[in-house]
């Protein structure tokens, strides 16, 4: 992670969060959660600012941030597509869906499109195996996905800038 790619982060936006937990021990995880609400992810400058404010070493803050899957250290897209690759979904074709997404939007699971429109993430089981394969687009659960349908839905949601016409 280099600082260059995280330029333009406004640390002032963090002040309210830090003030809310000032002097509270053991508040690191809620602070990280709220910071992520503010920035969409946890840029390194934000982790350093949190470390300074809480007195927790930045190496520990970073350890916590990397331990939990809920925290993101890279900028995420304006739209989030979660692709389930649990056993049932895997068997019912998630790998094919992933390939289709890569073909059309140029992103592999874990990546964000260059224009910052779309992030594709893989998760392991959303508890809806009967609907396999399952994708979740911006919180909207979509079952029994097929590649054309998925690409079209994502395209519509993301808008014309998100990828090529099918």
């Amino acid at each position: 992670m280099d600082m260059q790619s995280h330029a333009g982060v406004d640390l002032d936006l963090l002040e309210d969060v830090l003030a809310q937990y000032q002097g509270q021990r053991g508040a690191l995880i809620p602070i990280l959660q709220k910071a992520q609400d503010v920035y969409g992810y946890l840029p390194p400058q934000v982790l350093q600012r949190i470390a300074r404010s809480t007195g927790v070493a930045v190496s520990k803050v970073y350890g916590v941030a990397t331990f939990y899957a809920q925290f993101y250290l890279q900028k995420r897209g304006r739209h989030i597509l979660k692709l389930c690759d649990g056993t049932a979904c895997h068997v019912k074709g998630t790998p094919v869906l992933a390939t289709a997404l890569e073909d059309h939007f140029g992103v592999q699971p874990g990546q964000t499109t260059e224009d910052g429109a779309l992030t594709v993430e893989v998760v392991y089981c959303l508890g809806s195996c009967a609907l396999a394969p399952v994708a979740v687009l911006d919180g909207q659960v979509m079952g029994r996905m097929r590649q054309e349908m998925l690409v079209r839905t994502v395209q519509k949601q993301v808008g014309a800038a998100g990828g090529e016409e099918v």
Binding site: M1, D2, M3, P44, L47, Q48, A57, V58, S59, K60, Y62, G63, T66, F67
Partner: peptide, 27 residues
């Protein structure tokens, strides 16, 4: 580094089989 130098510059990052010792990025 934490207990004797009071410079906790190394940490344990990530999880499970991926866990590594490292510095904070650019640290």
């Amino acid at each position: 580094l934490g207990e004797w130098e009071d410079k906790p510059q190394l940490g344990l990052f990530h999880r499970g089989g991926e866990t590594v010792i490292d510095k904070f990025p650019d640290g």
